[in-house]
Design a protein around this nucleic acid. Structure first.
Lengths: 139, 139
DNA sequence: GCTTGACCTGGAGCGCGCTCCAGGTTCTAC
DNA sequence: GTAGAACCTGGAGCGCGCTCCAGGTCAAGC
């Protein structure tokens, strides 16, 4: 039986801000901005006041990045982070937010696919225009 | 044989800016901004200097809206509009732009779908958390 | 003719999501 | 101990895509 759980009181490995920049692709400034904005709870510091990120911080950042990439605003991410900070009692609210975000996202994906199809048609039109020049060029 | 072509010298019907606002969903200010930015060629005016849009203007605006909805920047739309203004010789360039835009768009759609799937997983996680409270809540 | 609402212009302002800066502190390697 | 890199803070600035404003002109209905 291997030990899968972290040892209690074992010093958890931490990451400097530069390491988090490397792993997430976020900039130093964005990481500080997210912290200042309350998207991420105040990260632990060394005695010299330098940030040290835990694996859990990284996982949360990666989740935030996913929310951002799917078009969630900073304001909504702030709401979500605030709910999360209030603990398990807010799980239903968080679930509702995620479900709504997912519904929006899927609708946006559908709209993009419709637009992509229309773009395909426009491209076909231009291709025909190249083959048979002199036809009308409405656009 | 019905006459499918517009009669030469027939007064083409025109639209006021308010009518174009209604049909496109763009605001007065956005329409003026697009014209100032060169996205749309200077629209015809009445003797009193008020804009009158032609059906072709509307079609072009609708195309611009599609480009915008698929994430094209104003700067790229300006490039496209400029090529269009230079005439048929630029069709190959326009086609290249549209093909590249389509490739970007399809990649973004794929990324969104991946993120949507991950969001589904996260929602499943929260749903299980609601059913069996007390489990770990990593996020 | 008058009123009222639609329209015109140039330019300033705004909300978003960062990004940059100045000036100082801390850490690491030698 | 020291140099140089990494890090800290508050706050200003920026690029994008509009949006608003002031101060005027024009048009349609009575």
């Amino acid at each position: 039986m291997t030990s899968g759980q972290p040892l209690p009181h074992a010093a958890e490995p931490t990451l400097t801000i530069a390491q988090v920049v490397d792993r997430t692709g976020l900039s130093h400034d964005t990481l500080r901005y997210y912290e200042k904005a309350g998207l991420i709870e105040r990260v632990g510091r060394t005695t010299g006041n330098q940030r040290r990120y835990l694996a859990a911080d990284l996982a949360w950042l990666e989740f935030l990045i996913r929310l951002r990439e799917t078009g969630m605003s900073i304001a909504d991410m702030q709401r979500f982070a605030e709910l999360r900070a209030r603990g398990d009692a807010t799980v239903p609210d968080r679930l509702a937010m995620l479900r709504e975000h997912r519904a929006d996202l899927k609708e946006r994906i559908r709209a993009l696919r419709r637009n992509a199809a229309a773009l395909d048609d426009k491209i076909d039109h231009y291709e025909r225009l190249l083959e048979r020049p002199g036809s009308d060029d409405p656009i």
